[in-house]
Amino acid sequence: MSRKVMHICLSNGWGGLEMYPSRIIPELRRQGWEAHGLALAGSRVAASLVEADITPLTVASRGKALLKVGRLLKYLKAHDIRILHCHKSSDLRLGALLVTLRPSLRLFFTDHMGVTRPKKDPYHRWAYGKVTLVFSISETTRQRNLAAFPLPPGRIRRLYLGIDPAPYAPRLTETKRQALRDSLGVPPGAVVIGLAGRLTPGKGQGLWIEALAGLAERHPALAWHGVLIGGLTAAEGSSEAFVAELHERVAELGLAERVTFAGFRADLPRLFEALDIVCVPSRNEAFGLTVIEAMAAGKAVVGANSGAIPELIDEGTGRLAAPDDPLAWRDAMGELAGDATLRQCLGEGAREKVSAHFTLNAHVQGLERAYIDAWE
């Protein structure tokens, strides 16, 4: 079979879903695949594909993509591409149309978001009927997919996301690590409690701030500093109104000197080296990429006991707390902040778990097996 695939992501956003094609394409290439991309002109997805050494086809909009289906079919034929892989449910309309016009194509779809309502009306039965296989990025999302999609269980497969652990291995000298902590406003000797992600209500930053206030009250002698990592503007994917609310609440609670808003950081693997505890209080993560990134960095993680996060964290790698219970988060953070030996043990266990179960190499091997099986 042709070892060529086109990844389709017609999105103007920028999050884990949009980053996915450019993250996996280099690994696909290393495993002998020729990858192509289709993206919206001027989008960050298109730019990321260029950075991954792919010159993507671009269209002005999803509607224009449908109008240019003839051009797309000619491109697929000219390059002998027989596998299409979509990443947004709205792109399935295009993928299904291409398969309808050229039945020899195989169509794959990764549900990055976790479907929340049934999709069994006539349109979705047609679109999903053209899909060879749906990838669910966690068992939590797979169960939702089984209930929502008009497909038999054999065409819905769990395939955990993965990362390359190597960039997350510590590499800073102690002098550089201390300089990084100083730049974040961390007092000497303080335990650094970090939270990374888009600043939007569903990511749990508000609860985290309330929990930090509780930590200060319950453990007045404990030296700690909070670091909130994430873009502060709409252009960086965050809610500016919510960011303003967080700043206001931090001031009201008297935490202005103990919480740093670090903004968007492209150097997250290095930033993890400045942290001692990483918190992920998101209410409904379909997977939890930040969780495994922090685990790969050897950090003790406190995660929400909802969504897919409990599939990633166990008692040997971190702690879980309800995403609506600031007292539970206060206690989990207090336990870890007060015990450096426990943090080290959990971090070592976390790093080993990522290497065993959540690597990019293993993820792409799963993709490759599915692509090949589709032709057997």
Rank of each mutant, 00 (worst) to 15 (best):
W33I: 05
V354N: 00
G298L: 04
D91V: 11
T141H: 07
L222W: 02
I209K: 02
I81W: 06
E139A: 12
I83E: 04
S183N: 08
T58V: 15
L271C: 04
E27D: 07
E139I: 08
A147H: 13
G307T: 09
S355M: 13
L92M: 11
D182H: 14
P170C: 08
W33R: 08
L253Q: 13
V354Q: 01
G214K: 12
H36N: 05
A78R: 15
I229Q: 03
A362H: 11
C345G: 13
L312K: 09
L101T: 12
A169P: 01
V280D: 00
T141A: 10
L66N: 03
P326D: 05
L57H: 03
S306T: 15
V131H: 06
L180D: 01
R218Q: 14
F358E: 02
L253M: 08
G13R: 12
L72M: 15
K176P: 00
L72P: 01
S2D: 14
V115E: 06
R144C: 01
E257M: 03
R249D: 03
A148N: 15
T140W: 13
D331K: 12
Q178V: 09
N12G: 15
G347R: 07
F109T: 05
L159P: 02
K74Q: 14
N145L: 05
G185S: 08
M19A: 14
A211H: 08
P165M: 03
T100F: 14
E315H: 14
A321L: 08
P269F: 05
A328C: 07
Y20V: 08
A190S: 14
A262P: 01
A47K: 13
I156K: 08
T359P: 00
K120Q: 15
